[in-house]
């Protein structure tokens, strides 16, 4: 008989002190090459990351802007597969307990087989799933398999989500709720624009999402963005800006250290 341990994601939010924010970093598995992903994750953790969102590349990432499209294409060209992604998570687990959320589009998951995918993801040490093209309407496809394997299902709320929808997302989600700060694709907006539009939205989120912690993302480029936007929630998510930092430095000498400096700066300013 296996007793359910407290999930790594829950534990992470419980550890958060009042005056700090949870930093979740998105990285595309297999970008910029297959060998670096594990080292990047471990280095992110050392430099302040609290959660990793590990991107499962898809050929047609229609919710993503040019940056993550590019990273996905590179990773696919590098020969990334679902098995290799699971192997990467396993490798990280040898030395780290950082929560890892697998994030991607539903089709590669469907193709792998939903039950097999959830079982193997859990076995290798992944903690949850974010599938942006699988909204609550379609959650029945995967919700049971995720639950049976103790994987958190994380759904998104957006500025145009109604109050009722936000409540529904809160009810269906576990781990945390992903707050998309602006309408648009990933990475699309500039910091100031985000900061202005986000306040009212976060106010509504806080009224309606009461069960789960909340992380806010989309368009965060630097430390100042991150801390202004996440003032009223538990933390923030950075994806495109991090991929851009890798793209700018790779494969120059010391590229990884430069990326880690960017990460440290994101968290600590």
């Amino acid at each position: 008989m296996i007793t359910k341990q407290k999930s790594r994601v829950d534990a992470c939010f419980e550890r958060r002190s009042e005056d700090s924010k949870i930093m979740s970093l998105f990285i595309t598995a297999g970008y910029p090459d297959l060998e670096s992903t594990v080292d990047l994750i471990l280095g992110f953790e050392k430099n302040g990351a609290d959660i990793i969102e590990l991107g499962m590349p898809f050929s047609d990432p229609l919710a993503d802007g040019p940056t993550i499209q590019y990273a996905s294409n590179v990773a696919i060209a590098n020969g990334i597969t679902m098995k290799k992604i699971f192997q990467m998570v396993k490798e990280v687990r040898k030395s780290s307990q950082i929560p890892i959320i697998l994030m991607g589009y539903i089709n590669p998951v469907l193709r792998y087989g939903i039950d097999e995918f959830c079982r193997e993801a859990a076995e290798c040490g992944a903690d949850g799933l974010i599938l942006p093209d699988s909204p609550p309407e379609e959650s029945s496809l995967i919700a049971d398999a995720a639950k049976n394997n103790n994987l958190d299902m994380i759904y998104l709320v957006a500025p145009n989500s109604t109050d009722a929808r936000m409540k529904k997302v809160d009810e269906l989600s576990s781990g945390f709720v992903y707050c998309v700060s602006v309408t648009g694709v990933t990475g699309a907006r500039q910091g100031e624009e985000v900061a202005r539009s986000v306040e009212r939205f976060i106010g509504r989120v806080n009224q309606n999402v009461t069960k789960n912690p909340k992380l806010v993302g989309f368009g965060i480029k630097n430390h100042d963005d991150a801390f202004i936007i996440s003032k009223q929630v538990d933390g923030f998510i950075v994806g495109s800006a991090l991929i851009d930092a890798i793209r700018k430095n790779y494969p120059n000498n010391g590229w990884m250290d430069n990326v880690f400096s960017f990460v440290k700066e994101l968290k600590h300013g």
Partner: peptide, 10 residues
């Protein structure tokens, strides 16, 4: 079905 990002649901 409706396999789209949350933003498009409304």
């Amino acid at each position: 079905g409706k396999f789209v990002p949350e933003i498009l649901i409304p």
